[in-house]
Amino acid sequence: MEGQLSINVCLAATHYGLIALSFALVSRTAKFFHVAHCAIFTLGAYITFTLIGTGVGSVASVVGGVIVGSAAGCAMDLIVFQRLRRRGASPEIQLLASFGLLVTLQSLISLFFGNERHSLLNQPAEMGISLLWGHATPTQLLAAGVSLSVAVVILLWSRLSTAGLILKAVGDDPGLSLARGIRTDRAILIAFAVASGAMALGGILQAADVGLTPLMGFQALLVGFAGALLGGLDSNARAYFGGVAIGGLEQLGAMFLPGQWYESAIYLLLIIVLVARGRRALGERIE
């Protein structure tokens, strides 16, 4: 029993780790809570679903989904957020705009695809592979592997590459970065591109496991956001591990709490973490 639990924890952990990481990457660099990011999660899955439906091969469909997801994220930045930034809009305003985008995208997906759960791959239910401690399907294992690898690549890139360091600088102090000649708009656009691609991938991987619904992104957002906060939004690596922790907590909660109460517990945790961290937001206490 514990064995299966730990398998589930690992699967959930890699999944939410990636979501939390991508959310932290974009929110940190653009300096606001980009809630519409979760719409990219859903969009990526549905694009892949559509491509597979039109006969494109699985791998190409996945790549297509990731590319479209990344492009959609960039479009959001270019059309909406860059303009708001130029006008000196506060983080709250950008958050509101992001909500508008989220609602619009989610409802358009609902409009075109309906609300029922679709299956991504349309193949018969897979037999679980027997691992040492429990069972996992090949799809789940592949998803976890891909998730983990992509996360590692992104983390290394953000720490070691010039681009990654520029993104960090822009996130820490955009004014100073601009004064130093860094093209902050381009840096933020890159953050959107990379984070959205990763988020789209996350959505595709989840869809491959449990299918897709228009609301899948929002649910992912809440847990991923809680995870990113838990780890700390001021560091990509910490956000990733926060996501990992939340994934683990979710599975533990599902196992030990009656019914669907583990959901409520996660949301409560989100609020608690937010309020607790609010006092230490970026090293300042807020009066």
Binding site: V35, S90, P91, L96, S264, Y267, L268
Partner: peptide, 27 residues
């Protein structure tokens, strides 16, 4: 939350509260 959090953090906290209460109604 309003006493402790700045603008956009507060909005997210209210979001968390909304989904929390909604899940209580369900569960």
């Amino acid at each position: 939350a309003a006493s402790r959090l700045r603008g956009d953090h507060f909005i997210m906290a209210t979001l968390g509260y909304q989904v929390f209460l909604a899940s209580v109604f369900e569960n």
